[in-house]
Amino acid sequence: MRFHTRKWIKPEDLNANNSLFGGRLLAWIDEEAALYAIIQLENQHVVTKYMSSINFMASARVNDIIEIGIEPVKFGKTSLTLKCEVRNKMTRETIITIDEIIMVNLGEDGQPVPHGKHQIEYVKDRLKENPS
């Protein structure tokens, strides 16, 4: 799993129990999944269709640093399925896992459209192919 994003837990990210608010974490995960899909599918019109069961295994507290890992599972005709793990950067303790996040590629009309992708592509490799 590649961990792309780090977040520093601040007081405004906490719930009434003084631990990381799950809704805030899910918003970060959704944003990270969208960014990953946008880059992979080369289309800014991508939406979240589905998230599988979410397994909270631990929490985070103020001043903890967490990291969000996203990994592709499957390329569909119009979708990209990802999995996610969030862990404490310092202790490596897993905070949450999500086995499936399905992102759908949309056309200008807002309807699903084939993306033509079949494997992970890295931006650095695209730059080599298209010297401009």
Rank of each mutant, 00 (worst) to 15 (best):
M1E: 04
R2D: 02
F3T: 10
H4G: 12
R6V: 05
K7I: 03
W8P: 00
I9E: 01
K10P: 02
K10E: 13
E12L: 05
E12F: 14
L14T: 06
L14R: 02
N15S: 00
A16E: 09
A16Y: 15
N18R: 13
F21Y: 14
F21R: 06
F21P: 01
F21N: 05
G22T: 06
G22I: 02
G22W: 02
G23K: 03
R24S: 09
R24Q: 10
R24V: 08
L26E: 02
L26K: 09
W28T: 10
I29N: 09
I29Q: 08
D30W: 11
D30M: 08
D30I: 08
E31W: 07
E32L: 05
E32S: 13
A33H: 03
A34P: 00
L35V: 14
L35C: 09
L35Y: 02
A37R: 00
A37D: 03
I39R: 12
I39S: 06
N43I: 04
Q44R: 13
Q44A: 12
H45P: 00
V46Q: 05
V47N: 06
V47Q: 04
V47M: 11
V47R: 02
V47P: 00
T48N: 15
T48P: 12
M51R: 13
M51D: 04
S52A: 14
I54S: 04
N55P: 01
F56R: 06
M57V: 12
A58E: 15
A58P: 01
S59V: 13
S59N: 14
R61W: 10
R61D: 02
V62T: 11
D64R: 07
I65C: 09
I66G: 00
I66Y: 00
E67C: 11
E67T: 09
E67R: 04
G69M: 00
G69I: 00
I70P: 01
I70M: 15
I70V: 12
P72M: 04
P72H: 11
V73F: 03
K74G: 01
G76N: 10
K77L: 04
T78E: 08
T78K: 14
S79E: 07
L82W: 07
K83R: 12
K83A: 08
E85V: 15
E85S: 11
R87P: 01
R87A: 03
N88C: 09
N88Q: 09
K89D: 05
R92P: 00
I95L: 11
I95P: 01
I96W: 02
I96S: 06
T97N: 05
D99L: 10
D99K: 15
D99Y: 07
E100F: 11
E100C: 05
I102A: 07
M103G: 12
M103S: 13
M103N: 12
V104I: 14
N105R: 01
N105S: 13
N105G: 07
N105D: 14
L106K: 05
G107P: 01
G107K: 02
D109G: 03
G110M: 12
Q111E: 15
P112F: 10
P112R: 06
P112Y: 10
V113K: 07
V113H: 01
P114C: 08
P114T: 12
H115L: 07
G116H: 09
G116W: 08
I120K: 15
E121S: 10
E121F: 01
Y122Q: 07
K124Q: 14
K124M: 12
D125C: 08
N130A: 13
P131I: 03
